[in-house]
Design a protein around this nucleic acid. Sequence first.
DNA 1: CTGTCAAGTGGTATCGGTACCATGAACGTG
DNA 2: CACGTTCATGGTACCGATACCACTTGACAG
Lengths: 340, 340
Amino acid sequence: MSSRQNSPERKKLRMRDIAAQAGVAPITVSRALSSPDKVSPETLKKILEVVQKEGFIPNNVAGSMRATAKVIGTIVPPLINSGIADQVQGMSDACAAHGYQLLLVQGDFSAEAEDKAIMALLGWRPKGLIIQAFVQSKAARKRIATAGVPVVEISEIRGRTPMNLAVGISNFDAAYAMTQHLAGKGYKRIGFVSTPIHGNDRLRQRRVGYRKAIADLGIDQGDLEVEVPITSKGGAAALSILTERDPSIEVIFCSSDLLAFGAVQECRRRGWAIPDRIAIAGFGDMDLASQTYPAITTVRVDRYGMGRSAVDHLLSLAAGETGSGKSVDVGFEIIDRESA
Amino acid sequence: MSSRQNSPERKKLRMRDIAAQAGVAPITVSRALSSPDKVSPETLKKILEVVQKEGFIPNNVAGSMRATAKVIGTIVPPLINSGIADQVQGMSDACAAHGYQLLLVQGDFSAEAEDKAIMALLGWRPKGLIIQAFVQSKAARKRIATAGVPVVEISEIRGRTPMNLAVGISNFDAAYAMTQHLAGKGYKRIGFVSTPIHGNDRLRQRRVGYRKAIADLGIDQGDLEVEVPITSKGGAAALSILTERDPSIEVIFCSSDLLAFGAVQECRRRGWAIPDRIAIAGFGDMDLASQTYPAITTVRVDRYGMGRSAVDHLLSLAAGETGSGKSVDVGFEIIDRESA
DNA sequence: CTGTCAAGTGGTATCGGTACCATGAACGTG
DNA sequence: CACGTTCATGGTACCGATACCACTTGACAG
């Protein structure tokens, strides 16, 4: 009766206000908004009209107390490279497609920060977590296990058994394949540039794959590995270090395109021809890699697809599928360009 | 009495379970966790022990029904360039520092998507919104106004009056300054490359600033503007288009470093010397700009700082400060490098 | 000894949806 | 025509933490 006039300075809209105005019970409004096919067409129309007119937006917080929240929590490393950004985009798009929200926390490289981030996420009782943390500490794993929330890890899929399910590639295989590829093109002395591993399995496996390939190839070249920060400046530095350590080095395989880019720029600065004076390969197939001149030979990984796939699998897990311990391999591809 | 043994297959932990085990009331546990100074040291210690032992994580969803949620919603454009990524990092860090969570939605370039995204965010009754949408449709603004949620816009600060408060720079001034800077270095024919404006005021103001500078300088050069997709490929294309349109063009000012990078690579491909054959300038001072050889002259904007500052101001607004209509100018800086 | 006050703690109502079960109407079937 | 079944809708009881107010206790001033 007084529901019309008191809008100007009355408080926030609730479902019951809409219900009153539409002449139905609150629960019917709820159904109209979340499962419209359970409401008769006329009622539905009437309710939606009121919702539209009043600009009502249901309170997800309240709704998430009974039903589990349509939220997926995720921890991502700092978005320094566009690979991660693609992945976030993939997760974001997939979430949107399913009507979920993405709760994003950025990790750094410390275990405490990771633990705190996980607690913050779990506090929201998300449907699941997608983790791509660097550390993956034991404490963190235990916390998640206790909470009983499904987890999809975007990670190295070789060797380790995931908590529930992992999406990723074998970084070992990829690095092995690239090293072999370079050897196949006739390069003899093959350097390797890594970023600080910090307990990150993906990075470690790349190095292991490289080493295995060198061993299998029977190349005797001493230590041609170096570790630098994950910036293009790091790549430039790596070039200097390695060429100084062994002037006859023929190719440098960088564990990230960002490093490869930096190395290419350093060559330009020195006036060195690529790949004649020295060849360079990267990892990730960032946009950069194809656009740099000369274009960079690299390993393509479908990061966007990994993000989407992670969300899809997570929702399956949450819906009851066990799939425990499985790994989903999204594969990789060697992209041969001009730089090596 | 039976609270100890039934843990194995009992349901989730609630605050009252902790309370029972610690021999206090639930509300005391609440206080112990959110305002520890209101609880006596002994009680606090006992409660924290139980919390620790059980691995209890309070349910934020429930807590957010009475008190407003410690959540900030944000809409960001696709993370195509690292500038946006820096900004997200800034917001994320600032949120973490204040104990807030970041609810992230990625926009695209359509008004409907934006409206949907805003509804999704508002459904969580966030403390506030940080918006950096491309469209900023009228419908979206109205929705936010109705919800009565404070908003910080990361945007162009010239001309437009923000809903509550805007953080950003004057893109007009920045583009004007760069154009003048280039003219000051002796360049006569100055081209301009923009990405599709799509109603985005920041991009528009850059173009307007450029045009104003050209007019003020009294340069009569015809149309040396072109619009290309925001990719490095777009930058390469722009170089081709402009040099074909006017072979005597001397410098190209790109409204994004990504474009400038593409243009530089295209020059390399053609064997053109930079800046002798043609000079290039960018916008944003992405990591790329300083690392590319030759290093790119550009406009530095502190994106990370903008993100942090947006969160800080938003929390002030939420705490009651009005600050309506104000704009916070974080400023810019012309970074003179080798490319122009 | 009484009154005032602060600190520490608890009881209760409440935030706003939705799961669960009940109800009544309309329809078809034997 | 009695009965089962489906469809549309409503009533009620929560979900789990916290705001609000009340209460107890001890310290201290007058």
